[in-house]
Design a protein around this nucleic acid. Structure first.
Lengths: 254, 254
DNA sequence: AACCCCAATATTGTTCACAATCAACCTGAT
DNA sequence: ATCAGGTTGATTGTGAACAATATTGGGGTT
C-alpha cells in the first residue's frame, strides 16, 4: 500500500512510453485512458512493477482519480498488449511470461530486427543516427547513475527508433510490443541481475549502421539479441512482487 | 437491417477464425466474449462486412443476446486488433486502412514471412505439409464454388499454419493480425475484384517447401506477397458498406 | 439548387447499486 | 502438525437507468 510514485502520469512516465509504444492514441481508448495505459505500461516495462504484482481496480481508480469502468478498459487493453494477465473473475496481475513465450519473443525479434537491418542499403540517414545516438547517450548516462528504469527505457527506445527509421509504423507497433514483453521476460528470468545487457552493444551497432557496414550491423544485432537471451535462466521462478501504490502512486493520492 | 446470417457463431464462423486468429482465448475476454469476437472478426476478415460498415452496440447485443457491456469489451478488443475503428463517442465501424498502412502491412509481411521461409533448412515436416495441403485444397474447392469467404479463410489459414510450423506462437499472433488486416486492405483497394490472388501461388510454394528448395520457396513467398500488393490501387475510395444484421445475424435474431 | 442552422432522434458514455465470485483466514478433527 | 471444511471479507462481474453526445432530417435562407 505504498506504491505512490511508480505510476506518475507526467514527464517521468513519458520517458516510459518511449520504451515500447508509439505516441499515437491507443485504438479505442480516450485520451485520459491512454495516459493511464501509458503510465501503467511504463511502470511494468521499466520493471518498477514486477511480474505477479496484483493490480486492483479500485486502487488504480484511486491513484488516477478515474472511475472503475475506465480502469477496466485500460486493463483490457494492457492484457491485449501482453503486459498483464487478466483471467476472468480473478483480477489483473503483471504478466508472468512462460519460458516458451520467452524463447518465442526473442526468436521473433531476431527474425524481424535482424531482417530489417539486413534490408538496409548504405549508411542510415543522419537524422536517424542522431536519434539513435541520443538513445545511447541516455542509456549511458542512466547507467552511470545506476537508474535501472531509465536505462531500460533508453535501451528499448533504441530498438523502437531504429525500427521507425528502417521500417514503418506497423513494424514499430510490433517491435514496441516485443520490446515491452522482453523487459518482463528479463525481469523474470535474468540470471545475473546486472544493470542491463552489455552497454556498448547499441553503440557498436550504431557505428556500423552509420558506416554503412550492413552485414556487420546485422551480425551485431543478432549477437546482441542472442546475448540477452543467453543470459536468461528459464528455470527460475521468482516470487517477489511490488507494492502498487508506491510504484504507481501520485503525490496527491497518498 | 437484414444482416442476420453473416454473424453466426457456429461452424461457419469457426472456419473464419482460422483465417487470422489463434484458437486460444483472447486475453482478458471470457469464453462467451471470445466467441463473439471470433464471429465478428471472421465476418470482417472474410469480407462479409465491408470497410466502413457501422457496428451498433445494441444491434450486436441483440444478435448475440449479450449485454451491451460485453459487446463493448469485444469492440475494444477488435479495435486493438486493428479490424475496427473506434473513435471515442462516435461508435465502431469496420476499419478503413489508409494507403500508408496498406504499404506498411505488406512490407512487414514480406520481412517476416520471407525471413521465416529463408531460415528453414531442408524439407518441411510431413505433418506440416499435410496441413498446408489441406489449406490449398480447401482454397481450390471454395474457388470452384465461387465462395469468396471460404477462399479468403483458407488462403489466410495457409499463411498462419505455415507460420505455426516454421515459427512459433508469438509469430502466429503477429502474422494472424497482419493477414486479417491484409484482407481489409484487399477489400478496400483491390483493382480487379477477382475472386482472389493467383490460386496456384500457395500450391507452388508448398511444393518448393516439401522439396526442400528453400531459396526458391522464399522467392515464391516474396513474389506472392508482391503480386498481391501490386494488384492494389491505393487511390480508390469505395463507399459501399454492408447490412449488419444480414451479414452477422442469427436465424432467431431476425 | 446549394448551404446552414436547429430540433429530434439515435447512439454512446457514465454512474450507481447489487449480485456473484474468489481469496484468506479461522476452526476443528485426524 | 497437517489438512479439510466453512465463514468472512475483499474484489470483480452485471444490469439498468440516466446523462452527454453525435447523427439525421427538415426548414429556412442565400
Amino acid at each position: 500500500m505504498n506504491n505512490i510514485g511508480v505510476l506518475n502520469v507526467d514527464a517521468e512516465a513519458a520517458a516510459g512510453w518511449s520504451a515500447g509504444l508509439a505516441p499515437r492514441a491507443i485504438s479505442g481508448l480516450t485520451e485520459a485512458e491512454t495516459a493511464i495505459f501509458i503510465a501503467v505500461r511504463g511502470a511494468i516495462v521499466e520493471q518498477r512493477l514486477l511480474p505477479g504484482t496484483r493490480l486492483i481496480e479500485e486502487e488504480l481508480a484511486a491513484i488516477y482519480q478515474a472511475s472503475r469502468m475506465r480502469i477496466r478498459r485500460v486493463l483490457l487493453a494492457l492484457a491485449h498488449e501482453g503486459v498483464i494477465d487478466l483471467p476472468p473473475g480473478r483480477g489483473a496481475t503483471v504478466a508472468c511470461p512462460t519460458p516458451d513465450e520467452a524463447r518465442s519473443v526473442f526468436q521473433a525479434r531476431r527474425l524481424i530486427e535482424v531482417g530489417m537491418v539486413e534490408a538496409q542499403v548504405g549508411p542510415i540517414a543522419p537524422a536517424l543516427a542522431g536519434v539513435l545516438r541520443a538513445c545511447c547517450d541516455a542509456e549511458t548516462e542512466a547507467g552511470l547513475v545506476r537508474d535501472r528504469a531509465r536505462m531500460i527505457a533508453a535501451s528499448g527506445r533504441f530498438h523502437v527508433e531504429l525500427t521507425r527509421g528502417l521500417g514503418n509504423s506497423v513494424l514499430v507497433e510490433i517491435v514496441s510490443n516485443l520490446v515491452g514483453r522482453s523487459s518482463l521476460i528479463i525481469a523474470l528470468f535474468q540470471r545475473h541481475p546486472a544493470l542491463c545487457c552489455r552497454m556498448d552493444d547499441h553503440q557498436r551497432l550504431l557505428d556500423a549502421l552509420v558506416a554503412g557496414r550492413v552485414k556487420a550491423a546485422a551480425g551485431l544485432m543478432r549477437a546482441h539479441l542472442a546475448a540477452i537471451e543467453a543470459g536468461l535462466d528459464v528455470a527460475m521462478t521468482p516470487t517477489e512482487t511490488s507494492d502498487l501504490r508506491f510504484v504507481l502512486g501520485r503525490p496527491d493520492a497518498g
